[in-house]
């Protein structure tokens, strides 16, 4: 079990959210989409340019940019 950011999770892999380092409006937005502690996240893929990546979060597919992903600390499953 390693501690990583969302950026380290490759398509097809699952992870569990530990903490959010983001602040301000982005923090609120990430919380709103359900990224709270212990949430299971699956990386579904990356966009053709390699960024953003799509994640399955609580039944919804959400695209997040890499600079925001790096602020989501997760444990790879």
């Amino acid at each position: 079990m390693n501690t990583n950011s969302l950026n380290d999770i490759n398509p097809g892999e699952h992870a569990i959210v530990n903490t959010l380092l983001s602040t301000g409006s982005m923090r609120r937005r990430l919380l709103d989409i359900g990224l709270v502690e212990n949430t299971n996240v699956e990386c579904l893929g990356r966009s053709p340019g390699g960024d953003p990546s799509a994640f399955l979060i609580r039944g919804a597919v959400i695209a997040i940019r890499s600079e925001d992903c790096k602020n989501v600390i997760v444990t790879r499953q």
């Binding site: 937005r29 597919v61 959400i62 600079e67 925001d68």
Partner: peptide, 11 residues
Amino acid sequence: VPSSFTLELPP
């Protein structure tokens, strides 16, 4: 700078 954003990809 580009601000952060999330985009939902609906079913």
